[in-house]
Design a protein around this nucleic acid. Structure first.
Lengths: 227, 227
DNA sequence: CGTGACTATTTTGTCGACAATGTGCCGAAG
DNA sequence: CTTCGGCACATTGTCGACAAAATAGTCACG
């Protein structure tokens, strides 16, 4: 039963798609420095393809604001600024607050149960790493991702997952001034799930907004200290 | 003083940019029917260019959700659905509510004065057309556009202007089930400006949310009647 | 008569070459 | 010595041709 090419989607995956993902990953992780100027020919050779697919990947990254382009001049990786990061968190507050409100109404019983199970696994991880006091980003993303999906509003989901989250991840990787408040964040996640389970939309939104607002304040504090 | 090439930006305008704008306009206005399948070669010939720039324009339209693409199959103009339109208005409620709140804090005195002046011109137009009871879309967009800009939050502005508004315009053109409540909308605009001028962020957000919510209810009513 | 596989056509994906534009360097004039 | 102008280089924009994939039509078989 082990088919030669078992990937269900990679068959349909075009070369531009692969470059897009690889490049996005490289940018998010900081392998290519923020603000750095890059040439199309270099990148094409680096990823083993021609300039055609590469340009398509770049266009997509441009629309996600991960690269900036000026005609006839070239492209550069998006520059990171403290102000832009704060703006992003204000956006998240409004959008994920809305998501939490909708999730309280629209999430199915199974989805709520899944969210609870996710928190249970986090609790175990947390118990183990309570000393290091380091909240691994992936778990946090998982939680927020599920709440967003739970809104059952596809326009909202696409906006958050497809546009904003990559930028948030980029900042998380490259400004290490983050989280370090795992217990608090975990407790807040719990309260949010409680409110969703109680189908209390108002409370869910309020708790989510406060959760993200706290994260923002934490970031602002770190940024001020390190400058 | 009439220079030969007086355009400040079109010098730097690439062919793909022109196609992008032209195609976007054609889609928004409905010259190309929603849901219709289109071939790259046809479009390229239709716009008098080759497939290279056209594909770049299509990628951009795809990221704005105006066209949908499946690899190796082709592209089709985004389909319009009632559900998607309602989702869009919920998004606007959250985002423009946030914009109004920020505008109340961040708008300069000149910007507020400009907003007042805009409403004055609307009032004149409105007085003339009060019988036809038809609120021209451009004026409404102008108002919302200025409030968004007044937020002085570039991430928010780019999101609303660069991603959402074209879709809203598309629905406005193609579902004619709209507005027909010019006096009410105009009065709501006035109240929003009042709140902004008073630097009352809470009230500004509330009024903007209610304004958009009313528009949504109006649309829902129209949609129900025409089906 | 219906269903399945195969082939042919159409459409998209990819590539390399050419043209156009912007940038930086170099030299000459003030 | 500084500044303006022109030239050469490098990079991006555009184009046409080729390759790969999917759809649709057709034919044979049950």
């Amino acid at each position: 039963m082990s088919a030669p090419t078992l990937d269900p989607d990679s068959v349909r995956r075009t070369s531009a798609d692969r470059i897009f993902e690889a490049l996005q990953d490289a940018i998010v992780r900081g392998d290519i420095g923020a603000g750095e100027r890059v040439g199309e020919a270099d990148l094409a050779e680096r990823f083993g393809t021609s300039r055609g697919p590469l340009r398509e990947a770049l266009r997509r990254l441009e629309s996600r604001r991960l690269v900036e382009r000026t005609p006839h001049v070239g492209i550069r990786i998006a520059a990171l600024s403290h102000a832009a990061l704060i703006e992003l968190y204000f956006l998240r507050e409004a959008l994920e607050g809305m998501a939490a409100r909708l999730a309280a109404v629209n999430m199915t019983g199974d989805e709520v149960a899944g969210l609870r199970a996710l928190l249970a696994t986090h609790e175990q991880d947390e118990a183990l790493k309570s000393d290091t006091a380091y909240f691994q980003p992936e778990g946090d993303f998982d939680f927020h991702y599920r709440v967003i999906q739970g809104s059952h509003n596809s326009a909202l989901t696409q906006l958050l997952v497809g546009e904003l989250y990559h930028r948030v991840r980029m900042y998380r990787y490259q400004f290490s001034a983050y989280a370090n408040r795992p217990q608090k964040a975990f407790a807040e996640h719990q309260h949010i799930v409680d409110a969703i389970e109680a189908r209390d939309g108002d409370l869910s939104e309020m708790l989510m907004r406060r959760h993200i607002s706290s994260a923002r304040h934490n970031i602002e504090k770190h940024l001020k200290e390190n400058s």
